[in-house]
Structure formats: C-alpha cells, structure tokens
Design a protein around this nucleic acid. Sequence first.
DNA 1: CAGCTCATGTAATGGGTTACATGATTTT
DNA 2: AAAATCATGTAACCCATTACATGAGCTG
Lengths: 170, 170
Amino acid sequence: MSLRHAVLGLLSEGSASGYDLMKLFDLSLANVWPATQSQLYSELGKLAEAGLVDVTAEGPRGRKEYTITEKGLAELRHWLTEVPPARVLRSDMLLRVFFLGRVSPEEAKAYLSGQAELARKQLEHIESIRGLVENGTDNLSVYGRLVLEYGHRLARSQQEWAEWAQKQIG
Amino acid sequence: MSLRHAVLGLLSEGSASGYDLMKLFDLSLANVWPATQSQLYSELGKLAEAGLVDVTAEGPRGRKEYTITEKGLAELRHWLTEVPPARVLRSDMLLRVFFLGRVSPEEAKAYLSGQAELARKQLEHIESIRGLVENGTDNLSVYGRLVLEYGHRLARSQQEWAEWAQKQIG
DNA sequence: CAGCTCATGTAATGGGTTACATGATTTT
DNA sequence: AAAATCATGTAACCCATTACATGAGCTG
C-alpha cells in the first residue's frame, strides 16, 4: 500500500495533476517505487474519495489539480514516523545464483561477470546524474541525494560482490 | 514469473512434494523469493499442465511427488543463461527517505538510526547462520553461501549508509 | 484417543502491468 | 494542417497475500 504514500509525499511538496505526478514519478521515484499511469490515476481517485486529497482546480483538457489535505498530511507523517517499513527483497538476480550449479562453471561465471558489468554501468549512470542533482535545495533534492548515495553504495557493493563471487567458482 | 523458476530450480536438485517444497522455500529462498503455500500448490499445477514437471509418485494423504522433466530442465537453463534478470528494486524504506523533509529533523534522524539498528541486527543474524551453512557441499549450499555473502555485504552497506545519512541532516 | 504433523486445495481481495480508447490544445 | 504533447480514463490479466476448509496418518 505504498503507492498511496508516494503520491501523498509528492503532493506534500505542492499541488499537481495526475499527469504532472507521472512525470515526477519517472524522474525521481522511478528507481525506488515505479508506478504506471493507470495506477496513478486510479490511486488519485481513491485518495480523493478518502478525503486525503482534494481537487482544487480544473484546467484545460479535463486537467484536475490535486492538493493534499490536512488529513492527507497527517496520514503521510503517520506513515513516515510510525509504520515500520516492511522490506521484502525479491531479487530475480539472486534467485538465479542459487541455481547456478545447474549450468556449467563457465556459464555461471559468465552470469556473474555480466552482473558485475551491469553494476559498473549502474555506478557510472549514478555518477553522471549526481552532477545534475547536486544543486537544488528543495526537499526532494536534498533527501533525493541521500537516496542517490544509497544507490551508489549498493551498486558498488554489487559490483565487488559479483567479482568476488566469480572467483569462488571453479 | 520467477516463482515458476524457483520451483523448477528446487526440483532440479531432487523430486519433492508441494509440502516439501514449502519447507525448502522457507529455509533457503525465503529472503530472496518468498512464496506462500497457496501460490506453490497452484504453480505446481500449472507446471504439471505445461509438462515442465511430472507427478512421479503418490503417497499417503494424497501426497504427490513432483519430478522435473527434460523440458523443465531446459526451461530452467534457458532462464539461467539467456533471460536477462529484470531487477525492480521497490523499497518502502528508501521511499520514506524522499519525504523525510515533511517531519522534524529529530524524527528524520530517528528514522535513519532505526534503519541502522535494523541493518545491524540483520548483519548479526546473517553471521549467526553463516556458521550453520558453512559445511554442506550440495549445490544449494555452495551457491547459497554466495547469496548469504551478498546479504552480508548489503546489510553492512545499509548500516554504514544509514549512519552516514544521519550526519547529513541537521 | 488426543494432538501433532503431513498434505492438498479453494476463495476473496488487492496491487501491478499492459493495452486500449479518446480527445483537447499547443506547436511547428 | 499535421504532429507533438497534454490529459484522463477503462479493461483484462497475472501475481501475491490472507483466510478458510478439509482430512489422513503418525506418536505418545
């Protein structure tokens, strides 16, 4: 049920339409909590019905601008401070590692070296966008940088692990 | 669609019933690809219908023993070597970080220190089970140790990050 | 024979993905 | 006038979670 909170979170920084939110999702939360357009619109409907957001303006082309309500803000803060984050790490990549014994050592190593390479690329990518976000004093940028740093460390760990793991085989 | 491959992977180590598989899931794949009992039984039905597994024995209490077929093994190997792992990291924990600006710096720090503490406990837990799995020469143990090492590095990174992030606030 | 473990299944619900459908407004 | 962008919505399908339902066979 976290899409709800992702939407409330973005709206807590300012009013926006479904369309605006979609763009925001794509450029800020995409790597942490991806959402599709149809999901977003239906969630906004539910949030409005529950009184956590209001439609505060209607523009051209049926545009609806949503604004978070007091109740919505309270729910957001409650979620942030009192609901324990339930992490379920489901990793396709790690699942395969369990079964690498079913293929040849060469294939297993190739898999791991592919993962190392992917992590290296991810690392580069993060470094390249770091520059773009390093100015920016709004909340989303400030805390977004903490998330980016997490991603950076994760990618580095992953690369090192994949290189180490290759050596364990054979 | 990876539950299917998790099941094939386990069956590639030896035949088992749904009940057996459930126990195997809980003690080996639980942290990488959790599955519920009802999911498992329905997946086994689908796998049998698709000819990727066969029912090779029936025991007391309606027990059905499933065995992977050649077709199933081929599918498993195909998945291992040719299907690029699509990682979608959806993290409740990181999502909150984006919105920590909505609560007081004290609350934000408390959140991060809670995460550091959780990571520390996770690290301890991994170290404690490391001893138990360190012998064991079957495929699942050998490659399971690579996964465990990943978990260890991840937990350590997470702890260090959460401690670092706390210092960035304020 | 009571209680535990083994063993399989169904039903309801919710979240996520993909595809489809439609049309207004702005830009070139 | 065509093309791009803005903008919202619906429908079908799959996967996952929770709860329910049932009963056979072993163990003390």
